[in-house]
């Protein structure tokens, strides 16, 4: 359940930037290949924010799909699987993106 550690990192990063200003919403970008489960993030966000300036804030998760390129036919495609298969049948696939785990913006009261 590393999502709890992830949300604790979000709380720490927001407080470092904004001090104790009450926060209404945090927007986080989560790639499909980041290894982080959005539902678990939502669950642990409530726990991690309790008693902080982020208590009661909304966690807005923007999903980014994974992006890959086939080394055999050169096709580029979206995938949510680290073990992606190209439509041409090749398994020789390079992951180009989808590991994002970023805090985009924070809305303060």
């Amino acid at each position: 359940m590393h999502e709890l550690a992830i949300t604790e990192s979000i709380v720490a990063a927001v407080r470092e930037k904004l001090g104790d200003a009450p926060v209404r919403r945090v927007c986080v970008e989560v790639g499909a290949l980041s290894g982080v489960v959005p539902d678990a993030l939502l669950f642990s966000f409530e726990v991690a924010t309790e008693g902080t300036s982020l208590a009661g804030a909304e966690l807005d998760i923007v999903r980014q799909s994974g992006r890959a390129r086939c080394r055999d036919c050169g096709a580029r495609f979206d995938t949510d699987d680290l073990l992606a298969l190209c439509a041409c049948g090749s398994a020789d696939v390079e992951v180009l993106g989808g590991r994002e785990l970023r805090i985009r913006e924070v809305e303060v009261v």
Binding site: S9, A13, V14, K17, R102, E107, V108
Partner: peptide
């Protein structure tokens, strides 16, 4: 709505 602050920071930046 309150005002929005752009952070654009990796979540695990601290780690």
């Amino acid at each position: 709505r309150g005002h929005t602050v752009a952070l654009e920071q990796r979540v695990l930046a601290r780690n």
